[in-house]
Design a protein around this nucleic acid. Structure first.
Lengths: 251, 251
DNA sequence: AAGCTAAAAAATGAATGCAAAAACTGCGAA
DNA sequence: TTCGCAGTTTTTGCATTCATTTTTTAGCTT
């Protein structure tokens, strides 16, 4: 599977916003430069193509992406700043291995960001947006009844994304996306088939979220969102523990 | 003043943690590489040496820091990822100009992070840590009585920093620091001499913060912290407006 | 003189080259 | 066999170089 080399093509593609300055736009963030490479590399790592503490061979990636070392190194620096990889002086880049403590922290920060999103969303969300979220919620509920994990998770994510968007804060949105990216690598593995008990609980929590949102009870929603993430974390942790003990004691 | 060239010396200096891997440490974030350059550049920009939307001349900075373009460009990429500068394809880097909307967003995100910090702090803070914060609070109060703005602000910042630290979440801490850095450039200018009315209010809010902290009322403290930042934002905004109208109508 | 076009100059993005640092290899000693 | 060590190979970090793109400048037309 050398599909990655194709991605390189796509990198240059979205270069298409030349009229920005005409519009009085104060020329915001780089519309798109070869840092599309950053996105490509990020995906490459997030998708788990590289083992956890694995060394990242510049050479190999250069070939894979068809570029020279200079832009690749720039991308690595950015990814390191994002916390996705570790950069060791004279010793190259490694995929960052998240410890349990790191995950605990990440979940809490995500919880804090979602709590904020909920609070802000209550201040400005429109009835239409709420209706949209409710629809996705009902879709999710159907997947829940069918025990369709994949669909369920997808709607779940969607709801959280919609709430963050409803907050109407681009900075928050970007930050949230960044953290979500960091966790995704883990969540990939932790897509609990077991812990189905959590499902019902999560559904109830989501109903509480919708309720608070409808009432525009910002501070209350903030609490619920944080607790929701806390519970998510506990479930993930529980599952992680289970996996570990499975490995150490394979009957 | 060409003192900046001296900074280049200091950059390489703190390279002194070679025994890390011996200690079973999983080799965390780059202990220190020439990305000290990133820190130097960040400071250089934050301190306001470059005008707001000003173009950042690679050439000039290379000379200033005594390095070639390659490492400088790497640093610029990182700073762009942090949101401190804008990178425009083929058109170089510019100091990012924060719009009022950007500031509004930044303040809210800071508020969200501090709300989270307060919540987490309530879960784990020790009586000793609370005592420490109380002490700084009393110092701050003395500066308040003396109308010593500088001392007051310093303690104020210190208290917020202590609360974030008390949260015991390194990820949160790093994120908070990053955002604080982004705002610092603005706060530099917005060090309101006027708006003294805000002082008393802020003092009262800080007392409420301490009270909630003592009672370990996480959710409540979370609310207070967010509102505290909201009020701060409003004060800053008000002042910014005042300055603007002053400029446009200088009677 | 104002406006437009074209050439020159400068700056950017990326590739290559080179010195220094790490990792690896094979050999010999305990 | 295991450990240590010198020599080789690989990799990293940075400087330099090259091709484009942008910006500036000069000249020409109206």
């Amino acid at each position: 599977m050398t599909g990655t080399s194709l991605d390189t093509q796509e990198i240059d593609a979205p270069n298409s916003r030349p009229a920005d300055e005409m519009l009085g736009e104060p020329l915001r963030a780089a519309p798109s430069l070869h840092d599309g490479l950053v996105a490509a590399l990020r995906d490459y790592i997030v998708e788990g193509n590289l083992a956890d503490g694995a060394r990242i061979p510049e050479r190999l990636l250069c070939e894979k992406f068809g570029i020279s070392r200079t832009p690749l190194r720039e991308a690595l620096k950015v990814l390191a700043a994002e916390g996705l990889i570790d950069l060791l002086p004279n010793r190259g880049a490694r995929v960052r291995a998240f410890s349990d403590e790191d995950l605990r922290e990440l979940f809490d920060v995500m919880g804090g960001l979602e709590a904020l999103a909920g609070r802000l969303a209550c201040e400005r969300i429109s009835d239409e947006e709420i209706t949209e979220i409710e629809q996705v919620h009902h879709e999710m509920y159907r997947f829940y009844l069918r025990r369709d994990m994949h669909g369920y998770f997808q709607r779940n994510q969607e709801i959280h994304r919609l709430i963050v968007e409803a907050a109407g804060n681009a900075t928050l949105n970007a930050t949230y996306a960044s953290f979500a990216g960091r966790i995704r690598r883990v969540r990939y593995a932790a897509n609990l088939d077991k812990e189905r008990d959590r499902w019902g609980e999560a559904m109830r929590e989501h109903e509480a979220i919708l309720d608070a949102l409808r009432r525009r009870a910002g501070s209350e929603l903030s609490d619920i969102m944080f607790q929701h993430l806390r519970n998510k974390r506990k479930a993930a942790q529980h599952q992680s523990d289970a996996q570990t003990s499975e490995r150490s004691a394979p009957s």
